[in-house]
Design a binder for these strands. Structure first.
Lengths: 193, 193
DNA sequence: AGCATTAACTAACAAATGTTAGTTAATGCT
DNA sequence: AGCATTAACTAACATTTGTTAGTTAATGCT
C-alpha cells in the first residue's frame, strides 16, 4: 500500500514536469512511462487515466490556493497586510510546486467538461476573494483608485513568470524575489518624490 | 494570387483563434479545416504544413516586438518615458492581435528545433533591450533599486493577462486599461504618503 | 478555342495515441 | 505451504493524427 502510494506519486510528479515542459497534449503516456522507468501500460496499475493525472495536478493547486485565501481572510490587519500575505503564499506555492502550478496555469483547458467547470469555479472563487481585498483597500483609501479587476489580474499575472523563470541557483534568493515583486507591485517602480 | 493570399490569411487567422482556444497539440488539421469551411487536405494548397502555421504566428509576434523595441530605442526622453512607450506598444499588439500573441506566448515550445532556437533568440533580444531601459533608469536614480531582471519579468508578465481577459465590451476601455496598468506598475498600488 | 493554373475534393497512408486484455513473477498474509 | 494481491510485462485494439496522391471543376491568359 505504501509502495503503491509511492509509485503513484512518482508518476504524478514526473507528469507535472513533463506537462510543464511539453504540454499535456504534447506528452504521451509512453513518454511519461519512459521517464518513470516503466511501460506505459504498467502505469495503469497506479493511475486511472491520463485525464485523472491532469485533474489531480490542477485541483491540487486550486485547493491549495483556496485554503490560503481562507487562511488570510481570518487574519487581522490592514488590507495591505492581508494582500501582502496572500501574495506571499501565492508565490510560495510557485516556488515549492512550480511544475504543478505551471500545469494548472497552462493545461487546465484540457480538463474534461464537468471537471473543467469545477476548476473554473474554484479559480473564480479565489479571484473573487483576492479582488475583495483590493476593493476594500481602495474603499478605505489605502490603495490608489484603480479598477479592482485590472489590479487583480495585473498582480496575479505579474507573479506568473516566477514558475517559468525561478531556479535556485540564479543569483536571486526567494526572499529577494518576494521583496522585489512586492516593492514593484505595491510601491511601484518609479521613485516616490 | 490575391485570392490565395486571402484564403491563406483566413487559415492563419482561424488557426490563431483555435490554437489559443485549444492549444497547438489540441487542434487537429481537421478541426481547423472545419472552422475554415474546407477539407483538411485542401488547406495544403495554401499552407505548407501545420508547423509552418505555428512558425508564421510566432515570428509575426516576435518580429513586431523587436521592431517596436528599435523604434523606442531611438526616441529621446527619460527612461521612464521610453519604458512607458514600449509598454504601451506591447499592450497595443495584445489588444490588436490577441490570438497570435497568445500562441506566441503559449505554443512557441512546439516550434521545430532550428525555428525554436531562432524564436528564443528573438525573445531574448527583446528582453535584453527592455531590461536595458530599466537598468539605465535605476543607474540614473529614476527607478527604485530593484533587481532589473525581476522588474523586467514582473512587468512583462503583468500585462500577459490582457490577451486572455480583454474583450471590447467589458466596461473597461483600452485607454483605462493602459492607464491603470501603468499606474500600478510604475507608481504602485499603495498610495504615496 | 485551347491550355495552364488554381483550388477544391475523396481516399488512403503510416505513424502515434490512450487504453485494455492476458500473462507472469514477486510479495505478504494465514 | 498455499493462496491472493500487487505490479510489472507483451501484444494488440481502435482512433486519431498530419500528410500525400490522384482527380476534377472552375478560372484566366494567349
Amino acid at each position: 500500500m505504501s509502495k503503491k502510494q509511492n509509485k503513484r506519486q512518482i508518476i504524478l510528479d514526473e507528469a507535472a514536469k513533463l506537462f510543464k515542459l511539453k504540454g499535456f497534449g504534447g506528452t504521451s503516456m509512453r513518454d511519461l512511462a519512459g521517464e518513470v522507468g516503466m511501460e506505459a501500460a504498467s502505469m495503469y496499475n497506479h493511475i486511472k487515466s491520463k485525464d485523472e493525472i491532469l485533474e489531480h495536478l490542477c485541483f491540487h493547486v486550486s485547493d491549495t490556493y483556496i485554503a490560503q485565501l481562507a487562511q488570510v481572510e481570518q487574519m487581522r490587519g490592514s488590507n495591505g497586510d492581508k494582500l501582502k500575505e496572500l501574495l506571499r503564499l501565492h508565490i510560495h506555492l510557485m516556488l515549492e510546486d512550480g511544475a504543478a502550478v505551471s500545469v494548472a496555469n497552462n493545461d487546465w483547458k484540457y480538463l474534461t467538461s464537468d471537471k473543467l467547470e469545477l476548476f473554473k469555479a474554484a479559480r473564480k472563487q479565489y479571484e473573487k476573494g483576492f479582488a475583495m481585498l483590493i476593493e476594500n483597500g481602495i474603499a478605505e483609501g489605502e490603495f490608489q483608485p484603480v479598477n479592482a479587476s485590472v489590479a487583480l489580474f495585473t498582480i496575479l499575472s505579474a507573479v506568473r513568470w516566477v514558475e517559468l523563470w525561478y531556479r535556485p541557483g540564479r543569483g536571486v534568493t526567494a526572499q529577494e524575489l518576494e521583496q522585489d515583486i512586492m516593492t514593484i507591485l505595491l510601491n511601484g517602480l518609479a521613485k516616490k518624490q
